[in-house]
């Protein structure tokens, strides 16, 4: 594998290529079973399991429990030391015990009352969360689909054409790149592209097609990027499953990451199509749902992009309707069969 790496002038391999090779190596070990998903999951939770309650940010109740532990004043001060020092310490301890206990009880009472107020406040926040589905831990516990049934094939030429119109500095990121089909086409068009996808098996096709895919959620990845480094970002799938707060953060992060003149391409499902793909229960209980094209355009413009009018996707019509030249039929068909997807392009100012 080492021979694949192209050395730079300084004799060191290109970092980007080296990282891609390391990620590929990891995927091979995962496929072979040398790195098991169970062990990775165990490592993820191991520190939480050995840490005191609340120490690793494990929720409000745990932190309050930790505060309660610290709220108990220990009057039994250690009296270790050399013999004369130990004697002095014991004497001071006995002489001041009444005073320390008097003050300590007031401190404990204050801490106890404050903690009680915090727990009441926590209960009220729990009530609020129960009325806010995206925050409800029970809803978050039901895993959303990692990718929708959106087929990006029809949008590949559209995305490539728009990217090629941007300044050629920087890379292009495809978030939730799935099997990497769009990424392959982008790379084949001479664009320096890479993808992110949190699914453990998402890199399998990437290896086959020799494209770079990083195992990460898009927001986690964007949070680590320096400002104004990307030529463009293509957002598919993830935009249809994120909660509103995450979608808002996504726009802000994209505005930070894309360089001046660069673009964001969003391909999103229509709400109708998205809901139809999930069924009533799945749609009702989903943490996130697609935004409409006007909303995306509004958010992008507000974040420092200049968005173009939305581009509707293809419409699959029944043959009889598609072949009809009757204007009335065409008008009715437009209402009955809206496009399943919409494309939005916005350029960074």
């Amino acid at each position: 594998m080492a021979a694949e790496t192209t050395p730079t002038a300084a004799g060191l391999p290109d970092q980007r290529q080296l990282l891609a090779e390391i990620e590929r190596d990891v995927r091979e070990h995962r496929r072979s079973g040398a790195i098991s998903a169970e062990f990775e999951a165990e490592l993820d939770r191991a520190f939480d399991e050995v840490s005191p309650p609340g120490a690793t940010g494990g929720g409000f109740d745990n932190v309050v429990d930790q505060a309660a532990r610290h709220a108990i004043v220990d009057y039994d001060a250690p009296t270790l030391g050399s013999t004369p020092l130990r004697f002095v310490k014991r004497l001071v301890k006995q002489l001041t015990a009444w005073y320390l206990i008097f003050v300590g009880r007031q401190l404990v009472a204050f801490a106890g009352t404050t903690l009680r107020a915090l727990r009441i406040l926590g209960g009220r926040v729990d009530e609020l969360e129960r009325r806010t589905p995206a925050l409800d831990p029970r809803v978050q516990a039901s895993p959303p689909p990692v990718a929708s049934d959106l087929d990006v094939a029809e949008w590949i030429p559209f995305a490539i054409e728009r990217i090629l119109q941007t300044p050629s500095t920087g890379r292009v990121l495809h978030a939730d790149c799935g099997d990497g089909s769009l990424l392959c086409a982008v790379t084949a068009a001479g664009i320096d592209g890479y993808g992110t996808d949190a699914r453990l098996d998402a890199g399998a096709k990437a290896d086959e097609y020799a494209v770079e895919v990083r195992s990460a959620e898009v927001l986690d990845h964007l949070r680590t990027l320096p400002k104004a480094t990307l030529r463009g970002i293509v957002l598919t799938h993830c935009v249809d499953r994120m909660a509103l707060g995450d979608q808002l953060e996504l726009v802000g992060r994209a505005a930070d990451a894309v360089c001046s003149g660069g673009i964001v391409v969003i391909v999103t499902q229509s709400l109708h199509s998205w809901a139809a793909g999930r069924g009533e229960i799945g749609a009702d209980l989903a943490v996130g749902r697609p935004l409409s094209a006007p909303t995306w355009i509004h958010l992008l413009n507000r974040a420092g992009f200049v968005a173009e009018p939305a581009v509707p996707g293809k419409v699959e019509l029944p043959d009889a309707v598609a072949q009809s030249s009757d204007p009335a039929v065409v008008a009715i068909a437009r209402e009955l069969f809206p496009p399943c997807t919409v494309g939005i392009v916005a350029r960074r100012e």
């Binding site: 990620e23 990891v26 070990h29 490592l43 680590t224």
Partner: peptide, 15 residues
């Protein structure tokens, strides 16, 4: 490394 998944860090050290 852009992130520190144990598998990636371990593979980098192995490299």
């Amino acid at each position: 490394l852009p992130h520190k998944q144990p598998a990636v860090v371990a593979a980098a050290v192995n490299r």
